[in-house]
Measured scan of single mutants.
Amino acid sequence: KEWNEKELQKLHCAFASLPKHKPGFWSEVAAAVGSRSPEECQRKYMENP
């Protein structure tokens, strides 16, 4: 399903605030978004950083 504005906001906010070198980075991003898997978050971010 399409990403909504709130999900995208959470994605970018989590990406900006979490340490990128940490193992499980995308899992933490997904936990912050709440409604998406780590894979979905990574794919979406890579599509549209």
Rank of each mutant, 00 (worst) to 15 (best):
42 Q>S: 08
18 L>F: 08
34 G>W: 01
48 N>L: 14
27 S>V: 12
37 S>M: 05
21 H>L: 12
24 G>Q: 12
35 S>L: 05
17 S>L: 04
7 E>C: 00
27 S>M: 09
14 A>D: 02
19 P>D: 15
14 A>V: 09
31 A>Q: 13
34 G>D: 07
6 K>H: 01
16 A>W: 08
21 H>N: 12
31 A>W: 04
22 K>S: 08
42 Q>R: 14
40 E>T: 00
25 F>S: 04
13 C>H: 14
14 A>E: 03
49 P>R: 15
42 Q>C: 12
29 V>S: 02
31 A>F: 10
19 P>F: 02
15 F>W: 10
22 K>M: 12
37 S>Q: 09
41 C>N: 01
20 K>Y: 05
41 C>T: 02
33 V>A: 03
20 K>C: 05
35 S>V: 05
49 P>F: 10
12 H>Q: 14
15 F>D: 07
46 M>I: 07
26 W>N: 03
2 E>R: 06
40 E>K: 14
40 E>D: 15
29 V>P: 01
16 A>P: 02
11 L>Q: 00
13 C>P: 01
27 S>R: 12
15 F>G: 08
2 E>Q: 14
15 F>S: 14
38 P>Q: 10
11 L>C: 02
27 S>W: 08
14 A>P: 00
28 E>H: 12
18 L>V: 13
23 P>S: 13
1 K>L: 01
46 M>F: 15
26 W>S: 04
28 E>W: 06
42 Q>M: 07
21 H>G: 14
33 V>Q: 02
21 H>F: 08
36 R>Q: 11
23 P>M: 06
32 A>V: 13
4 N>F: 03
45 Y>D: 04
21 H>M: 15
7 E>A: 01
33 V>T: 04
12 H>T: 09
13 C>T: 15
18 L>M: 10
46 M>N: 13
47 E>H: 06
19 P>H: 13
10 K>Q: 09
42 Q>H: 06
30 A>M: 00
10 K>R: 09
33 V>E: 01
46 M>W: 09
26 W>A: 04
9 Q>F: 07
11 L>K: 01
7 E>I: 00
44 K>L: 07
12 H>M: 07
5 E>D: 10
1 K>W: 04
15 F>M: 13
34 G>A: 12
46 M>Q: 13
13 C>K: 13
40 E>F: 00
6 K>Y: 05
30 A>T: 01
47 E>K: 08
38 P>W: 06
42 Q>F: 04
20 K>S: 07
41 C>Q: 00
27 S>Q: 14
43 R>A: 13
11 L>G: 01
40 E>V: 00
45 Y>T: 15
36 R>V: 09
30 A>W: 00
42 Q>K: 05
41 C>I: 01
10 K>I: 10
4 N>I: 04
24 G>V: 07
40 E>P: 00
17 S>T: 07
14 A>R: 02
20 K>P: 11
44 K>H: 08
31 A>G: 13
7 E>G: 00
26 W>Y: 02
25 F>R: 03
48 N>F: 07
17 S>N: 14
30 A>I: 00
12 H>K: 07
36 R>E: 02
33 V>M: 05
10 K>A: 11
7 E>W: 00
41 C>L: 01
15 F>L: 14
48 N>V: 12
44 K>Q: 12
38 P>A: 14
18 L>E: 06
48 N>Q: 10
28 E>D: 12
5 E>N: 08
34 G>P: 02
44 K>D: 01
4 N>K: 10
